[in-house]
Structure formats: C-alpha cells, structure tokens
Amino acid sequence: MEHSGISVLFQGRNFVRLLGGLWTSVWIAALALVFGLLLGALIGLLRTSKSKLLRAIFRIYLEFFRIVPTVVLLFLFYYILPRQVGINWPGSVMATIAFALWVSAEFSDIVRGALISVPKVQQESGLALGLSKWQLFIYVLLPQAFQLELPATINLATRVIKTTSLLMMISVMDLINVGQQIIEANNQSHPTAVFWIYGLIFLLYFIVDYPLSLWSKKVARRNQN
C-alpha cells in the first residue's frame, strides 16, 4: 500500500508519541529561555557598567557564542563536560544549559542595546525628579527597554525553538528523534511514511513558531508609531 503512508501518523500511539517529542523540545526551549533571559539581563546590565574589564569579559563571552555554531556548542557540552569535569547529566540537561548560556549571550546584547538607547533626557528627567539610580532603572529604563526590545526577544525565542531540532544529534528524545524511530519501524510496510512524518514535524515547528513571529512583528510595528 504505497499511499497509505499517512496512516502511520495515526497508528497506535504514534501521533501521541510525536506530540510527546514536541513537548520535550518545547520544554527544553522554555527552560533555556527562562534561565537564559535572567542571566542575560544581568550580563546586559553589567555590560553597561563603568568597568572596562567587565565589559571586555562579557563582550568576549558574547562573541564566543556568536561565532560558534549551535551544533558545535551542543557537542562541546556533550563531550567535554562529562569527560573533563566528570559531570554526567542526561543530554536534555546538557542541552538546556548550553542553550541557556547561548540565550544569555544573545539577550545580554539586546538588553545592553535597549539600555543605551533609552534617551538620555529620560534618564536626566528621572534624576531631576529625585529618583534614585535604582528607582530610575526599575521605573524608567526597564519598562522602556522592555517594550523596545520585546520583538528582538521574541525572535530569539523562535530561534531557540528552531534550534531544538538539533537535540536529536545528542540523542535527546525530541520531536525529530521520535519521528525517526517511527519511520524506521514502518519503513518496510509503509515506505512513504517518511514523507508524512517529516511533513508533520515541519508543520508542528511552524505551528509553534509562526504565532510568535506574528506577535513580534505586531509589537515592532506598534513600537514604530
């Protein structure tokens, strides 16, 4: 039955298993984002500090993550941590850490960009009202920076979600890995299953990412007005 490949999608627990794989991917992306954004906000703040040394260190940190492709980053964590440091956590944890650090680097640049782009007048008028530096940061700079950089941050999130497709390379049971297993199990009986499974995975990624992209564009347009 050549064209019944689509039936593989709904055989047994296949569809549920695929959704389970998607869940793993989304969950790792979400954790990486939470930790990465927190760390990135801190680093971003430090990158506006007066200390040249601090600024240089975190600049190098950023450039490192900019230069190393994410695949390579995953392998760095996957191979080097266990063998050198003796840490032997599951691939999903390694991946979460690797992604979180990557996110923190990218986000630190977003935060820094936002902080230095809030007009100086705003800062001065805040100070003129008698706000402390800390109050100024919390009530004036942060909200404006947040609004300004929300689109870039959402874009970063969509990139992280797309990058979870690499998890299969370090043997995490993500969406694609589950899909591959189903394809292999059905290869003899349903050679066209590969078309439908990968087609579905393609679509699932799109369904998760597209609304985020739309949101980001909407916010960007609102910011312009």
């Binding site: 490949g5 969509t158 797309k162 990058t163 979870t164 497709s165 690499l166 299969m168 694609i176 394809i183 050679p191 066209t192 590969v194 078309f195 990968y198 087609g199 995975i201 393609f202 990624y205 799109f206 990412d209 597209y210 992209s213």
Partner: peptide
C-alpha cells in the same frame, strides 16, 4: 522557511523526496 528549522528542511529534501 523562516519559522522552521533547516534540519527538518534537509531531512525532508534528503529522505522524503526520494520516496516521491
């Protein structure tokens, strides 16, 4: 194409297209 990973695009081209 902006909202899907390159990896799955490649898998589709490399593994699914031959079936078609």
């Amino acid at each position: 194409f902006r909202n899907t990973p390159l990896l799955i695009q490649l898998f589709f081209l490399y593994y699914a297209f031959p079936v078609m």
